[in-house]
């Protein structure tokens, strides 16, 4: 695949819907239904991105991703800052990686 072409096409399909409201400010008014559908997309997209991808973070150790997800979820529940969640999760996984060789599953 031509990655440069892909980047340009993705940039275009992202930008074009964004620029339309900038040009036609007054004339846009979508129904509640359309708005609801579009607002739901990020949730379902994130759900689909997480599962089952999280299980393949480390192809050799499926539970690594699961541990990370549980930690991140717990921190998010406690309203920890987004950046801190990512950093803490990475740090915990580095720790897990240094313990794992002792307990092969």
């Amino acid at each position: 695949m031509d990655i440069n072409l892909m980047i340009i096409l993705c940039a275009l399909v992202t930008f074009i819907p964004m620029v339309i409201p900038a040009i036609f400010v007054e004339r846009l008014n979508f129904s509640t239904k359309v708005e609801k559908f579009l607002n739901l997309i990020p949730y379902t997209a994130l759900a689909a991105l997480i599962c089952p991808g999280v299980l393949t973070v480390d192809p050799n150790l499926w539970y690594i991703g699961l541990i990370g997800a549980i930690i991140a979820g717990g921190l998010a529940w406690k309203k920890v800052h987004l950046g801190a969640i990512v950093i803490l999760t990475v740090i915990v996984l580095i720790a897990v990686y240094s313990i794992v060789p002792m307990f092969p599953i």
């Binding site: 994130l46 997480i50 973070v57 990370g68 991140a72 921190l75 998010a76 987004l82 990475v90 580095i94």
Partner: peptide, 19 residues
């Protein structure tokens, strides 16, 4: 090992956004 651990950062981000 550190680079490997960064793989989780994306999923941590997804989960952190979603929860």
């Amino acid at each position: 090992i550190v680079a490997n651990s960064f793989n989780i950062s994306l999923y941590a981000l997804f989960v952190a956004l979603l929860v």
